[in-house]
Design a protein around this nucleic acid. Structure first.
Lengths: 197, 197, 197, 197
DNA sequence: CACTAAACGAGACGGTACGTCGAGTCTTGGA
DNA sequence: TCCAAGACTCGACGTACCGTCTCGTTTAGTG
């Protein structure tokens, strides 16, 4: 996102200041208002930037939001070098659940919501946020299989869906709180599926 | 939804024809366009109805959509009278997964998306669609606990989240298809958590 | 202009207040800025009115300006009941020249200028400003032919063009001032063409 | 126009190719679209030239147009060496009327229109197009005065306005066609004012 | 023959206004 | 009191150009 051509460029180069101002403004506004209520016009005004400058570099409002989210949020994936796959997974899940509670959780939910009618942005969000986490978890599971903790004929994708699905389910449906208690109990329970029967 | 006062009323009574026309029009338009692109104006025009009539009886666009969805979609919950709790649950999950694939799945996803900024409509959707299904499943699990199929100290809400979460996860994140194969494999795997250890 | 259908109307009637506010605002702005620099957006803001309301009732910016000009400017045609056709004509020409000097002259020039790319508005201007004056002058000339002051086989349109053309010529080309001295000398000279040879 | 400094210059000299390309492109575009719809951006693109190059050498869009018009149109002033001043004037007027009909007439009208808000360009147009013609006609009239054809105490400027005014009047107001019939009848009639008597 | 300095193309920049759409409200006449 | 019609104010859309700016690249004359 936010970069388009690798070809030799001519003309005035892209302004880094503007780019930063746009992402900063977006992030600032996101704390007060929803992605839905955010407008390109509002971002441009807040950033002191022309609308065209935004349209030139991002395909949609949601794309800007995803970009702002990814560059403004510390989105480290929990990678403690434990030799216990179960514990490692629990940590990763807890880390995600924590990241998705509060302000950031609301924003992620709204990004996914916007993504329903902006598939390109949803794709971008998956690539930059979702998949890296799934990938990390997969590695842990593979490790767990090697050590014999987990069932050897596990379907990894399915396992990811069961471990992470309930978190997004609560995030988006909002029927029950997405708190630490839930994440620890849920992950412990879900882990049962992975274990050697 | 779509009804407000129980008090004694005077003056011209509400027009049933208009109400039906509005829901019909909404449903018709939903097949072509997204909830997002749907507009009160568009519904009113399609239904041959004044905008005020819609605003009078529904609090928001999404509320109309939820109403249309609930009354137009056959939303029976699978209730076969089996004495096998596991099988019963599998059936329920498969039934939901099937209901959420195709057109209707898209609409549900869009309703949940709109719900992120229309909490009232999301609440309504939960009450009318989500909770009845969870309730039905809970009953089956309670039955399963009685028969000894399932662990007796299960947290029912948690169990629901693990069983249903992955479905909504795929529905909303769209990283992988939400098909029959997934639902059957997933539900079978997830059921492991419920079983007596 | 500013009225469209004679058909039976339903729905909320047009707001007279808005219409007046739009014309007032237009006229006020015209005193400060040129027709060219005037914008629908600016008029709407000044009038405290939505842009759509303007677009609903006028086909273009220039149409609003013509409307404002015609209703705000006292555009009486000089009609003294003299029995001397020559004198009468001189008065009419002097009256027009006076009307076209100063602020109003600038506005008329700008209307005609806009009219070059807005033929509909130019037509409107001709119908409401130009033609009534030409018609009045024609009547006087016809009178003058009857009394024997003027040549009996005059081409009336041609006569109008010779009498009025020089005024608009100076107004629009701006090579020389459009003042009283010019108008009186010019009209006296031009009248020679009409006289019996 | 299109040249600014006579001072000693260093650095890369002005590109004749670019200058020509700009005027050519302007002229080409003018045949399809109005001066109003023409844009610096459009000219630059059509000419394969940077916008700055245009801004460097011309003060405004209209200035480019005037330049293109003056260098692309054969704008010879009719100068037959007749000893009959009347005939000579009729020829000159007919020549102008002919020049101002069709495409070129439209462009002149649009230049004058733009000139209402670009006084510099209007001045330029007067200096390069209007005044030379007036000057030529004045000479003829002076000749006519000498030969006794015309009134000796004629106001030359006034005479010019009466002879040429009606043509621009029709050109810009568009109430009646600007054709050969008009120009010949009108000029013959207008000449009456100049004659002795 | 390198150096200097202006002109060049390209195109990004902050703006302004465009004409359109829909939101939610208001105001008619008629049922 | 409800209803359809449709006008109202308002805010945002995505686009087109404005006139300015910053690049790297010519292209002459000067030192």
């Amino acid at each position: 996102m936010a970069d388009k051509k690798a070809t030799i460029r001519t003309g005035r180069p892209r302004s880094i200041e503007s780019q930063q101002a746009i992402l900063d403004a977006t992030w600032k506004l996101l704390k007060k208002i929803s992605v839905r209520d955010l407008s390109i016009e509002g971002i441009a005004k807040e950033a002191g930037v022309g609308k065209t400058t935004i349209y030139r570099w991002w395909p949609s409002k949601t794309a800007v939001v995803v970009d702002a989210f990814m560059t403004r949020v510390i989105t480290d994936i929990c990678f403690s070098e434990s030799d216990n796959a179960q514990e490692e997974l629990l940590k990763q899940i807890a880390s995600l659940a924590k990241a998705l509670s509060g302000e950031n959780g609301r924003i992620v939910a709204e990004i996914i919501a916007e993504g329903q009618t902006d598939k390109e942005a949803l794709q971008d969000f998956r690539d930059r946020f979702l998949f890296p986490r799934r990938e990390a978890a997969k590695q842990v599971i593979i490790q767990g299989i090697k050590t014999g903790e987990f069932n050897s004929n596990l379907d990894l994708e399915l396992a990811m869906d069961i471990l992470y699905g309930p978190i997004y389910y609560r995030l988006l449906l909002g029927h029950l709180p997405l708190n630490q208690e839930f994440s620890s109990l849920m992950s412990e329970m879900a882990l049962q599926c992975l274990k050697k029967g």
